[in-house]
């Protein structure tokens, strides 16, 4: 059976459903008997979700937040090009 260390190399492909059938079988065989790797997988997935949540909500806040001087600079540069 593969070790925890070897299993870690498969995590990214596992969460994006890119493991080949034989790799998936090995992965799941290890997972059935290794609670720390199950915990690692779950927290690895949560990490991705938390990262998205931390940044997506930041965007909402910044929805209209463009400094007026930057707007002016962009428009001035555009006028020069026109």
């Amino acid at each position: 059976m593969i070790t925890c260390k070897e299993l870690a190399d498969f995590l990214a492909d596992y969460v994006s459903n890119e493991l080949r059938p034989e790799q998936l079988a090995e992965f799941e065989r290890h997972m059935r008997v290794c609670p720390p790797c199950v915990a690692y997988l779950n927290t690895y997935r949560q990490t991705i979700t938390l990262g998205k949540q931390a940044i997506c909500c930041d965007d909402e806040k910044a929805l209209h937040d463009i400094p007026e001087e930057l707007v002016k600079a962009i428009l001035a540069a555009n006028s020069r090009r026109a």
Binding site: K5, C37, A39, Y40, T43, Q53, A54
Partner: peptide, 20 residues
Amino acid sequence: DDGHQARPATEWGESPHAAM
């Protein structure tokens, strides 16, 4: 050396998602 996690991972539960 045997390939086991040196510091076995533990579950986080739901609290981080609520805290977000």
